[in-house]
Design a binder for these strands. Structure first.
Lengths: 246, 246
DNA sequence: TAGTGGTCTAGACCACGAG
DNA sequence: TCGTGGTCTAGACCACTAC
């Protein structure tokens, strides 16, 4: 098993084993609540250590594909629990729109150098008089307005890039390609809200329509605040779900 | 290290080590981005295996208290990332209200045996003509209305309990104590909405006020759907956050 | 009592980062 | 090149479940 791993592009063994277990469930046509082979049996079947088996099973358990009961065994979970994309998973909005089955698009509203609000100064750890750049965009799904995004980053992060030279679809991809900054996680506050004046103007929505606002701070792996965003989503298009575990 | 574990009440070693590492950070006054001892050093410090150290560190990494960089080391994360209660963690509403710093209370609206909607039949896997019980409650925070809860369970789960004999604060605790059913996770859809007629009547809120609706299905460990709920939260009181990771 | 998953040990090789 | 975290092996004892 270990030999031909190197030919593949460095996928961990536990990831491979996870796939093999899924194939096993498929092949043996295991139904919900059917028992999988025990961990010790799996070590023999795949000729690998129990540690690796347990890693693979942990991945499947996280995704609610299996469940374990101490002293009894490991079992297949009920079917309809596959979630395409839960809010607890951080995707770019481009990707979210795709997962909902629409073709993503962008209409630029403005790029402006502005003076940060007090909240921004605090959250982005800005120095006094430090400037920020605010990007306002309409994101479309199959050409129709679906979200209004207001992203703000410290000007220093963008270096010598002038605001009008900046153009991108996904801010995540842009930050990664241009500056090597990889966003690892975000902390989002979820707020029901009415559209702002600007949104009424640019999106042509009614002032009493409802939006879901995600007020988010994005961090890199080392916990540095990278950007500050207010993303307004049209709930008719975005059905946000979240898996909540104990 | 292993000897005196038995005196404590079965907390895993990795949990204990997690605490010890936190104490170490405290004692040594480690600042954000300061380096922790390497894993091999920690094995010597605590006289335990690297596996257990890594489990403890994994817990701390999940909580964004530390971050790791392959080839470099393990580091303390920036401070203000402590979240009291993210939506990705399933708490009872009683507990959520407490974590927000209020005293939880309940005002009962009704308990009714009803005919399920088509959506309920599908989601709760009901047989034709199977009845359900719907609980409607107002949850209060420091005596003020904070949420309107509509929970529905299949009648068969409640067995011989008659609706009017039922009274509880937390549905989670009730299900556990009365029937031994433990809710393990929920899948929630997050929807901005206006109050229903009933809410306007019982809560005395304006019909144009905003609510955050969590449309949720709760499951036990084995993936059985236990209950169906529509929870309406007043966003002035509940500031829901979620950690979104890649 | 036998089998299961949960936890822990000791040791190994690897890829990555920095000097 | 050396130390680090990432991955994997082999073996052990425990608590829990079911018989």
């Amino acid at each position: 098993m270990t030999e031909f791993r190197k030919s593949k592009k460095y996928v961990s063994l536990s990831q491979e084993v996870k796939k093999k277990i899924l194939e096993y469930i498929e092949k043996e046509n295991l139904q919900p609540d059917d028992k999988l082979p025990s961990e010790s049996q799996l070590t023999k079947m795949f000729k690998i250590s129990r540690y690796t088996i347990r890693e693979a099973l942990a991945l499947l358990e996280q995704e609610k594909i299996i469940y374990k009961i101490k002293g009894k065994g490991t079992f297949v979970n009920k079917k309809p629990i596959q979630i395409k994309s839960g809010l607890e998973y951080l995707d770019s909005i481009t990707e979210i729109i795709r997962k909902f089955g629409y073709e993503p698009g962008t209409k630029w509203v403005s790029i402006e150098e502005t003076i940060p609000t007090k909240d921004m100064v605090k959250k982005l750890n800005l120095k006094p008089k430090e400037k920020v750049i605010t990007f306002k965009r309409i994101r479309t799904a199959d050409g129709k307005p679906a979200a209004f995004l207001v992203d703000t980053v410290a000007k220093k992060i963008l270096g010598n890039k002038k605001p009008d030279q900046i153009n991108f679809e996904s801010l995540f991809e842009y930050m990664e390609k241009e500056f090597g900054i990889i966003i690892e996680y975000a902390i989002s506050e979820i707020i029901p809200t009415f559209p702002t004046e600007e949104m009424i103007q640019y999106l042509g929505v009614d002032k009493n329509s409802l939006f879901l606002l995600l007020y988010q701070l994005h961090y890199d792996k080392e916990g540095r605040t990278i950007f500050y965003s207010l993303d307004y989503f049209d709930p008719k298009i975005f059905k946000f779900k979240v898996i909540r575990s104990r």
